[in-house]
Simulated scan of single mutants.
Amino acid sequence: MALVTAGVVVLDCAEPEKLAEFYRQLLDAEETEASANRVEIRGADGIRLALRRDVNATPPSWPRPENSLQTHLEFEVTDLDAAERRIVSLGGRPTETKDASGPFEERGYADPAGHSFILRTTTPTAPKQG
């Protein structure tokens, strides 16, 4: 029997209820757990994401070159333009303005609290180049 049976990505933010609503709508997810300091959602494909209250949270500064990207989320989509319109309508914003290089198309965004995430049309096969 496995010692670890489940995992969840947790993002710290000042207002977990608001950020959970952004991701709930983006992922067509449902809320599975909520308390005063944490909200967890689960997407139809099983992805689990939790938002945890941190009253001192500050938005990440990525993609500024002086600060290395430590963590980000990646979501696969079939239509990048439609997904971008949805993200912007929910309060997210684009962060990548250059064309992506490589065998797949991807675009970078920030959620309303400043966490970075990538939309891509296929799963990458090569390591990140820079």
Rank of each mutant, 00 (worst) to 15 (best):
N37K: 03
D12E: 14
P94C: 02
L73S: 06
K98G: 12
D28G: 03
T125Y: 01
T58G: 09
H72M: 12
V4T: 14
Q25V: 05
F104I: 15
V77R: 00
T71H: 12
C13H: 09
H115C: 07
Q25N: 06
L80S: 06
P65N: 11
T32V: 15
F22S: 07
L26T: 02
P60L: 04
D28Y: 00
A57Q: 10
T32Q: 13
T125Q: 08
L19T: 05
E74A: 09
P16M: 08
Q70R: 15
Y109Q: 04
P63Y: 03
F22G: 08
G92K: 03
P112V: 11
A110Y: 09
G92V: 09
A14M: 05
K128A: 10
R86I: 06
V4I: 15
D111N: 09
A57S: 11
A50R: 00
L73W: 07
E96D: 05
A2F: 05
V88W: 00
P65S: 11
L73F: 10
Y23V: 09
P94A: 08
K98A: 15
L90R: 07
H72Q: 12
G114M: 05
L51P: 09
G114Q: 05
A100H: 02
F75S: 00
V55I: 11
A110R: 13
R53C: 12
A44R: 14
T32A: 08
S116F: 15
E17T: 15
Y109F: 15
G102I: 01
A100E: 00
A44Q: 15
E84M: 00
E106T: 03
E30N: 06
P94E: 03
E33A: 06
E96R: 01
Q25Y: 00
T78I: 07
P94N: 01
T58E: 14
P59D: 09
V8R: 03
E76I: 07
A50H: 01
T5I: 10
L49C: 08
V88N: 01
E105Q: 13
W62D: 07
G130Q: 02
S89K: 10
G114P: 05
E17R: 12
N37R: 04
N67W: 06
Y109C: 03
E40Y: 02
R24H: 05
E15K: 10
L19D: 04
E40K: 06
C13D: 11
E66Q: 14
S61N: 11
L80M: 15
